[in-house]
């Protein structure tokens, strides 16, 4: 594909100046790419970028702080990079950001369900993009699926498909699918009464295996080894196997991301139990948007509202003067 080849050429040109370029390469099966760490321009041919490049490469940047790193980003990845920059967790001068127009990414779960009667994802020989559909090479021959049927939900409401603030942008920018994130998913969820919603979370959380994949996949969870979830001092969470501590962790995670979460959805994608944990973060994002008129990772001049202190908040009227 043209853009992929252009990106490969760009990476080859840029690599001599950089310690490493993070992008995507062949993954565990044909439906999924995996993160790729390129150090040698000769390997650039395996680089992939497109509908199957789901992982958010911003995740790896804080570890590389202080080294010159190139990074390929989709629109959502670029917001994560932006938020990391705003918080001073990575430095702009260390980064070489390569953007490209994203037409959304696959939800491998949706695709696996659709092809279930033909084969398993692992049996697919190859998959490629063809306009608005993907062509899959199965054991019994080729067939195609419409992209919109297998696209991740987050892409349908994505307002920023083109990476912002990129040093190099390859390809034509495209218009977003949505004009405005109206939080329709939240509104639908909030139709149910409070007890029902609590029951929903209790049921979902009962499946949690406390693997912390949601945390480890989050590009903004930068505490890593010092996470309160596993600390004994302060001892926020007990090791008891109960819904209480599992839900407590999700609420801690969501509050630590309030005003920081860019909605990349990696937490939910990484969850092996399919728990819809992004919904909690979106509830707080909506609140931050209405209270502080702030959306994470977009405005490089703005300050994350919960990471500053001001006596007066312009949109919170505590007094009548």
């Amino acid at each position: 594909m043209a853009i992929e080849q252009e990106l490969q050429a760009a990476v080859k040109a840029a690599l001599p100046e950089l310690d490493c370029i993070i992008g995507w390469g062949p993954g565990p099966d044909a439906l999924r790419d995996a993160p790729l760490f390129l150090r040698d321009a000769a390997d650039a041919d395996v680089l992939r970028a497109g509908f199957f490049s789901v992982n958010n490469p911003a995740l790896f940047l804080p570890e590389y702080k202080g080294r010159k790193i190139g990074v390929l980003v989709k629109g959502c990845d670029a917001r994560s990079v932006g938020q990391l920059l705003l918080e001073g967790l990575v430095r702009r001068e260390d980064l070489f950001v390569i953007g490209f127009p994203c037409s959304g990414v696959i939800d491998a779960g949706k695709a696996a369900a659709l092809i279930a009667d033909r084969c398993e994802a692992g049996e697919l020989r190859s998959v490629r993009e063809q306009g608005d559909s993907i062509v899959l090479e199965g054991p019994d021959g080729a067939f195609s699926l419409a992209k919109k049927d297998v696209r991740a939900d987050k892409c349908e409401r994505c307002l920023f498909p083109n990476a912002m603030d990129a040093d190099l942008f390859v390809g034509e920018k495209r218009a977003p699918f949505a004009e405005l994130d109206e939080y329709a998913d939240l509104a639908a969820f909030e139709q149910a009464p409070l007890e029902e919603r609590m029951a929903f979370w209790e049921k979902e959380m009962s499946r949690c295996i406390r693997c912390y994949a949601c945390r480890d996949a989050c590009p903004l969870c930068v505490c890593r080894d010092q996470c309160v979830a596993v600390a004994r001092d302060p001892h926020w969470l007990s090791q008891a196997d109960g819904i209480r501590d599992k839900l407590f962790f999700q609420i801690i995670h969501a509050s630590h991301l309030a005003g920081r979460c860019t909605g990349c959805g990696e937490c939910e994608r990484a969850c092996p139990m399919g728990i819809p944990v992004l919904l909690l973060k979106r509830a707080l994002s909506r609140r931050v948007e209405t209270l502080f008129a702030y959306r994470a990772g977009i405005d490089m001049q703005g300050r994350p509202p919960l990471l500053t202190f001001s006596l007066e908040e312009p949109r919170i009227k505590e007094r009548d003067w």
């Binding site: 930068v222 505490c223 010092q226 996470c227 309160v228 600390a231 001092d233 302060p234 001892h235 926020w236 630590h256 919960l306 990471l307 202190f309």
Partner: peptide, 22 residues
């Protein structure tokens, strides 16, 4: 304020530590 902001609880307020509140 720092105490409430520190995501991993590395800043503790003496006499009002996270553990004491918990």
């Amino acid at each position: 304020v720092c105490n409430a902001t520190c995501p991993q609880g590395a800043i503790q307020l003496s006499h009002f530590t996270d553990n004491q509140i918990l």
